[in-house]
Simulated assay, not measured.
Amino acid sequence: MKLAILDRDGTLNPLGDGYVTSPEEWTAMAGALEAIARLNHAGWHVVVATNQPGLGRGLFDVMALNAIHAKMHRQVAALGGRIDAVFYCPHAADEECACRKPAPGLLEQISDRYGVERQEVQVVGSCAAHLQAGAALGAQLHLVCTGPSAHLHPGMPLPADMPPGTRVHASLGDFVDQLLPAAAPPLAATPLPPLAGGISLDAI
C-alpha cells in the first residue's frame, strides 16, 4: 500500500486568524484537493493527521469538527478523490499527550492501522511539528511552502526547526508532480467509489 499522511491547516486549507470552528470557515487551498485526487488515481491512500487543540479549549465541539471534515470529504469527492480518514489530537498543548504533534502518536497509529512500513510513508505538511512527528516515525518528509511556510521556497536552506532530509516543494500540487511518474495517466473523470461507512474520524 502507498500511503501519504497530510497535515490539514496550512496544507489543505489556508490559515486564518484563529481556529477553524465551523464548516463555513473552512475553505480549501487552491489546488490542494485536486492534488489529493491525483494521488488517489495513482494508487495512493491519503490520510490527514491534525492537531485540534480548540476541542480541548472548548472553542468548538466534535460535532462541529465532524461537519468541517464532512465538507472537506464532499469537496474532494466532487473532484474524483477521497481522504481515507482524518486522525486528530483534541488536546491542548499543556496536556502533555502522546498524540499532539510533534509527538508521533497520531502518525504511528495511522501507519499501524494501514500496515505500511514506516520508512515507506510519505509525510507532507507546511509546519515543523508535522514534519518532526514524521521524522520520529522514520517516514519520508516533504515540506510544502504554504500556510506557515509560505515565505519559503524550494532551494532555500531549511529552517533550523525542520528535520534534516526534508524535501521542499512549492505546493501540494508540486509535491504530487515530483512523486508521480512523468508518464502517469491524467486524472480520470469518474469518481472513486465511496468508502464503506462514509467519513472516518479517529482520535487517540
Rank of each mutant, 00 (worst) to 15 (best):
P104H: 04
R100T: 11
G80S: 14
F87N: 02
C99R: 07
I110P: 06
R57P: 01
S111W: 01
P104F: 03
H73V: 01
V76L: 03
P53D: 15
Q75K: 07
I110R: 04
A93R: 13
V86S: 02
L55F: 01
G81F: 06
A93C: 09
H91K: 09
H69V: 02
L59W: 10
A98T: 05
G105I: 00
V86D: 03
A85I: 09
D94G: 07
P90C: 13
L79G: 14
A93Q: 10
L79F: 12
A92P: 02
C97I: 00
R74Q: 15
D112V: 06
A85M: 10
G115M: 06
G105E: 05
R113K: 11
L59R: 12
G105H: 04
F87H: 10
I110W: 00
D112W: 01
Q109T: 06
F60E: 09
V62D: 15
Y88Q: 07
I110G: 03
I110K: 05
D61I: 00
A85H: 10
L106M: 12
A85G: 08
L59V: 09
S111K: 03
L107D: 04
R100V: 06
P102K: 14
D84L: 07
D94Y: 10
H73I: 00
H73R: 07
R74V: 12
L59N: 05
V86A: 02
D112N: 04
C99Q: 08
H69K: 03
V62R: 15
G80Q: 10
G80E: 13
H73S: 09
S111F: 03
R57L: 05
I110V: 12
E95V: 12
R57V: 02
C89V: 04
F60Q: 08
Y114K: 05
L59E: 15
P53E: 14
A103C: 13
R82P: 01
L79P: 12
R57I: 04
E108C: 14
E95I: 07
L65W: 02
I68K: 07
